[in-house]
Amino acid sequence: MKAIILNRSLEQKIEIAEIEEPHLGPTEVLIQVKAAALNHRDEWCRQGLYPGLQDGIVLGSDGAGVIMKTGGMVDASMVGREVLINPAMNWGDDLKAQSKDFKILGMPDHGTLATYVKVNTDRLHDKPDNFTWEEAAALPLGGLTAYRALMTQGKVQSGEKVLVTGFGGGVAQFAAQFAIAAGADVYVSSSSQEKLNVAEKIGALGGYNYTDEDWVKKSLEETGGFDLIIDSAMGDTLNNLIKVVKPGGRIVFYGATKGNPTMLDARKIFWNQIQLIGSTMGTDRDFEQMLEFVQKQNIKPIVDQIYQVEQATEAFDRMKAGEQLGKIVISFKDSD
């Protein structure tokens, strides 16, 4: 079968290779992948920035497709079922935080960027009927991460002012869509005016270019501050977020792409009763609630571009450049 694997001996660090079809365990199924979506973790693997890397592993956490075979303990009537995959594995029993055995599909286990992928049946959910294959593949990891950050950890309420930073990436666009659907007054930030314009078209009340020196002042004048901020950058941008969050407000961060802050305005945090809340991926319950919310609110993932398997390097390069608005998807519908 055709697969996009990590190969750090090559200049591009990834390779389109022919590998053997997976062998199924008793509770697993074989899914013919119709579409798979990229996440930042795939590009971080290519750059060697992810722990536990292994050459030869099929990348990809997001995918949707058709069940083709079942393991010995799986009802054979599942064959032909159209599904999407929850890539969060082994969360554990504690809803507050993941277990030490938690891992994400696509490294160190073979992922979705292949003609076929095997997964345990407890990771499967029916593909929404009104979703294309590309939309279904775009939803799982980003949708789950955004839902937990916004709903479970952030506890967003209707009428609250919410700022979603870095609009354009997969999780941020879901967080904005979810917050709008939840009745919040949503604002976004981005370094791209085009992305800010798109955010306003889908219902955001305003946007700020975080490269502008006066964005903090401008946002405070226009909004009076935010009740909840959803962020993935951290680094020294955190102090600006501390300035624009209301007293008693919450800052939920699901990543730290800019690393740790070199300095922290601790006095303002404790004096203003600000909550800093970490979040990552989500529980099985988060996933089920996210999928139900998406279907009830008729939310569709924003798909940036669709690439064929042979264009894998172009797709990864677009992710690396941060040019995308929504999810980058690779189609396997015509793959052997």
Rank of each mutant, 00 (worst) to 15 (best):
V66Q: 03
W133M: 04
K218P: 12
V309W: 00
E20W: 06
A114I: 00
I14D: 01
A149S: 15
V58W: 03
F287A: 06
L38Q: 00
G206K: 05
A138V: 04
A321G: 12
L141E: 12
L163H: 00
G106P: 08
Y307S: 12
G80R: 01
E314T: 12
G92Y: 11
S335Q: 12
L6D: 03
Q297V: 00
V74S: 13
S9D: 13
L6R: 04
L325C: 08
L59A: 06
G225A: 12
A97Q: 14
A146L: 08
D122I: 08
G170P: 15
Q157R: 11
G207T: 04
T115N: 13
E323C: 08
G106I: 05
E221T: 04
G63V: 01
L144H: 08
F253N: 11
V74N: 08
M263V: 13
L276E: 09
D93T: 09
I14W: 01
I14C: 03
Y254L: 03
G71E: 09
L325Q: 08
G203N: 04
E28Q: 12
E21A: 11
Q193P: 14
L10A: 06
E323S: 15
Q177C: 06
D231P: 11
A97T: 14
E15A: 10
A182Q: 10
Q297W: 09
A35C: 09
Q324Y: 11
D42F: 03
I302A: 03
H40L: 10
V164L: 05
F167P: 06
I230M: 09
Q47A: 14
A136S: 14
Q193I: 10
A321K: 12
I306E: 00
A88K: 07
L139K: 02
D185L: 14
V29S: 06
S190R: 02
A175L: 07
T165K: 00
D286S: 07
V164T: 02
P22E: 07
I230T: 03
A315G: 09
I19H: 09
A36H: 02
